[in-house]
């Protein structure tokens, strides 16, 4: 029963009265509360889904930061300043996690109780993907001019977009094994884009 798992209310630290467990502010005394255990989607009033309207989420994010950011509490007590910092940090974490497709997919997998592969130090054992990554890396290594690299970046981004679409489908249908694989692939594609860009700026600097 959800009421016993997550108490619906807690004691407000300021007026010592009851306050909703997920409230940002006490509705009696208006004091800022500690961030609760809300999942990142709930923070923005959403249910978990890979396909998101990031602009809409950003609008909510900004509205909430307007209320919670430490700059709003600069003349308040030390305790309120600390809570505001915590709230703003959790809000930042929620937004950053959802904004980036790879971290969003990782987060959704974890919500489903699945440990995504390929976190730092974990090995990836998808020979096809490893092969593909190796080829991309070689091609990048050989690329000697900006035009070639730009073309590579464009191609990788296209692939990433397609991969994202597949990932959305997989997660929507709870096909977690597939989702896990696609997430790893997406991560590789993003990394390649990054490396290609880094090489481009190295070329430009030389």
């Amino acid at each position: 029963m959800s009421n016993t798992d997550h108490p619906a209310h807690k004691v407000c630290w300021s007026c010592k009265g009851p306050v909703d467990a997920s409230a940002l502010f006490c509705d009696t005394c208006n004091a800022i509360q500690a961030p609760g255990q809300l999942d990142h989607f709930k923070r923005f009033g959403l249910t978990p889904s890979f396909v998101l309207d990031i602009d809409a989420i950003e609008a909510t994010y900004l509205k909430q930061q307007q209320l919670l950011h430490p700059d709003r509490f600069a003349s308040k007590s030390g305790r309120e300043q600390a809570l505001s910092s915590q709230q703003a940090a959790s809000l930042n974490e929620a937004f950053e996690t959802l904004k980036n497709p790879v971290s969003r997919a990782h987060y959704m997998l974890r919500l489903a109780g699945i440990e995504p592969e390929g976190g730092e130090g974990h090995t990836v054992n998808d020979p096809e993907l490893l092969m593909e990554a190796m080829e991309m890396r070689e091609a990048l290594h050989d690329a000697a001019d900006k035009g070639t690299i730009d073309a590579m970046i464009k191609d990788t981004r296209k692939q990433a977009r397609a991969c994202e679409a597949d990932l959305g489908d997989a997660l929507a249908s709870n096909a977690f094994d597939t989702a896990k694989k696609l997430t790893t692939r997406l991560r590789y594609l993003m990394k390649m884009t990054e490396e290609a860009r880094a090489k481009k700026s190295r070329l430009a600097a030389a």
């Binding site: 407000c12 300021s14 007026c15 010592k16 009265g17 006490c26 009696t28 005394c29 208006n30 004091a31 003349s75 308040k76 007590s77 030390g78 305790r79 309120e80």
Partner: peptide, 13 residues
């Protein structure tokens, strides 16, 4: 600051 917050909170309650 803390005392003032305290008074306001109690009054609100």
């Amino acid at each position: 600051v803390e005392a003032r917050r305290n008074i306001l909170a109690v009054r609100a309650a």
